[in-house]
Design a protein around this nucleic acid. Structure first.
Length: 605
DNA sequence: GCCGTTTTCGGCCCGACTGTTTTCAGTCG
């Protein structure tokens, strides 16, 4: 496990243990916040820990937290963490994963009911002794029982691409109903996180159509594949959906049947006058919302999902007292009233975005005019060269790169040198015959385990574009894979490092190279780093993209298209780019044809 | 435990919902 991750887990565990022990909740929250900061850190915490002031410059990291971080980096442990662990039964933390069980309840179960793990919880439910505990009635116990079984089943988060499709089917059912002014996904789906825990949908009703809320809720709950209705109010509905497992292209890759997904979908219905405040609130992140609310208070205002209101000290919520909001109808108005530019959803993670002056100009889906990584029937794609080019043209691209697999990828029908030579001729011929788009002759060349490339330099030099990617030996240790990828990044004929870690989300971890070293080399050798847009990959991941942007690297957002519909995945790659604050000038795929082609020619020549 | 362009001490986001209670504690997002 990478250092950042294990440290973040440790701090998070400390926070949970403090909750269970009933310690100061603000102290616990401070540890939880520090855990999040470390987990999202673009870069290695070990490098920061060697310089205490840079650690203290991080938000939420003060002198005491800095000492704990330094202790962990230098000794691999935090003494205080171990002291906390010794006071709590080891099985108790698992109880916090059960929906509906929070720290207070678990503490009561432990100290007054003798519960130390999931098994002993089940025992006191079975023998009825749980009912003697405070605030434990029949209904509460039924709820715990139901959630226990749910908590034990698959807790994996859903892929962004699958969540997107599911959200669209729900939105389509309600979008055109009478009175619906807006219908949109919020939450981590809108923020473009690589996986989502649940799906949040938001609908706004026009004035006079308040009674439509009922019909909206019914249409929502009547969607296909709804396995269970959890809540059925007029302003809030909640369902669980059973999804068949579908891993796209990797469907049968490991032969094993992966568990089906159960995902919760929540719908909220709000008046259109509060659309902006509600969308802002339900999009999150929670940390971003807290930041905005603190900012509101400092300006004598108070922010909720109902709007931004004057803060008059009255404990009754302002929207229930007929107070007119300062801003509520659009997100932009709320941000403006807080003295901020509109912040793109993908950047709302409390990673310093509220300190940016704006306006924000991140790369946008509409900016993408070139696809630099695509496969044809020559290797494992489904489209011919001509079909691929026509599809790219139809999507408004000025350039498409044909980059079929190289010889070592035999499972993907990789091309031996002689086949590649003939393929290059075919691509060049198609380029001459088809107007309105440039078809580049390239290859997705395997980076072999030792870092050498799968074709010799003489052949590589004949290509218009070289995307070098790791496909095999993906469980190499960190030192070996860093050397391996560095060799590829430094190679003068490589333009783009394709899906740098080879991870498959929810499926395999992939390589864990020294990202800082890789990024520095990419910058030095003018090699672009790919964000592979397939929702199974999203590789580079968001935090590494941000790190690469900070270092001044070039980014390529590629679909790795094998079929026509794969071009639709571009939005997920772009969202990942935006999460890394990528601007169009640093993204190859947005460049005008002349600039892009000149850059490709310049390399290695 | 962190933090400060009114504060280096005394704060620390907001509201809905649920189930337990007779006025509210706990959880969730």
């Amino acid at each position: 496990m990478p250092l950042n991750e294990s440290l973040a887990n440790g701090l998070e565990s400390m926070a949970r243990l403090m909750d269970l022990l009933g310690e100061d909740s603000f102290k616990s929250a401070a540890h939880a916040r520090a855990a999040r900061v470390i987990a999202d850190l673009p870069g290695d915490v070990a490098a920061l820990a060697s310089d205490r002031p840079s650690l203290l410059a991080l938000p939420g990291i003060g002198p005491k937290m800095a000492d704990k971080i330094i202790e962990f980096v230098t000794t691999g442990r935090i003494a205080e963490h171990e002291a906390l662990l010794s006071q709590v039964p080891p099985g108790l933390l698992a109880l916090l994963e059960v929906p509906g069980l929070g720290p207070k309840t678990v503490r009561t179960l432990w100290q007054q009911g003798g519960v130390t793990n999931l098994t002993s919880l089940e025992r006191i439910i079975a023998d009825g002794s749980i009912l003697a505990l405070p605030r434990m009635g029949a209904k509460a116990v039924e709820k715990i029982k139901a959630n226990l079984t749910f908590a034990k089943s698959a807790p994996t988060r859903l892929w962004l691409g699958r969540a997107w499709t599911l959200a669209e089917t729900f939105l389509a059912r309600v979008r055109d109903l009478p009175g619906v002014a807006q219908a949109q996904a919020a939450g981590s789906l809108r923020r473009g996180r690589d996986t989502v825990g649940d799906i949040d949908l938001l609908v706004a009703l026009r004035p006079g159509y308040e009674s439509s809320a009922h019909a909206v809720g019914e249409a929502f709950r009547g969607a296909p594949d709804v396995a269970e209705v959890l809540a059925a109010g007029d302003t809030k509905s909640s369902v669980r959906v059973a999804l068949n497992h579908d891993a796209g292209r990797w469907k049968h890759a490991d032969g094993a049947k992966a568990p089906d997904h159960t995902v919760q979908v929540d719908l909220r219905v709000v008046p259109v006058a509060a659309w902006g405040a509600a969308l802002l609130y339900f999009t999150g992140s929670k940390a971003h919302n807290i930041r905005l609310r603190e900012r509101a208070l400092s300006k004598g205002l108070t922010l909720s999902e109902w709007g931004l209101f004057p803060h008059d000290g009255d404990a009754t919520p302002p929207h229930t007292r007929g107070i007119t909001p300062v801003a509520a109808d659009t997100e932009a108005h709320v941000y403006a009233a807080l003295g901020l530019p509109w912040i793109p959803p993908e950047a709302r993670e409390d990673h310093g975005e509220t300190d940016m002056p704006g306006p924000w100009a991140l790369v946008d889906l509409a900016d993408i005019k070139a696809e630099l990584h695509a496969h044809t029937t020559a290797s494992d794609g489904l489209l011919t060269i001509r079909e691929l080019a026509e599809e790219a043209k139809r999507r408004g691209f000025h350039t498409i790169a044909v980059t079929d697999h190289s010889q070592s990828s035999s499972i993907a029908n990789g091309l031996k040198p002689d086949r590649l030579r003939r393929h290059l001729d075919a691509v060049r011929k198609a380029n001459d015959e088809i107007d309105g788009i440039t078809i580049l002759a390239g290859s997705e060349v395997d980076i072999l385990a030792d870092g050498s490339l799968d074709y010799d330099d003489e052949l590589l030099a004949r290509l218009d574009i070289v995307v070098a990617s790791p496909h095999a030996a993906l469980s190499q240790d960190s030192t070996a894979c860093t050397e391996r990828l560095l060799r590829a990044v430094r190679h003068p004929l490589v333009h783009i490092l394709g899906h740098p870690t080879g991870r498959l989300i929810n499926r395999r971890k992939g390589l864990e190279p020294d990202m800082a070293a890789l990024i520095a080399a990419a910058k030095e050798h003018d090699t672009a780093l790919e964000i592979n847009a397939h929702w199974m990959r999203l590789d580079l991941r968001d935090t590494h993209v941000r790190q690469a942007m900070n270092a001044g690297c070039l980014i390529a957002v590629n679909t790795d298209a094998h079929a026509r519909e794969d071009f639709d995945n571009l939005r997920f790659g772009v969202m990942t780019a935006r999460r890394g604050w990528v601007t169009p000038d640093r993204c190859l795929n947005t460049w005008p044809a002349t600039k892009l082609h000149a850059w490709l020619k310049r390399k290695g020549r």
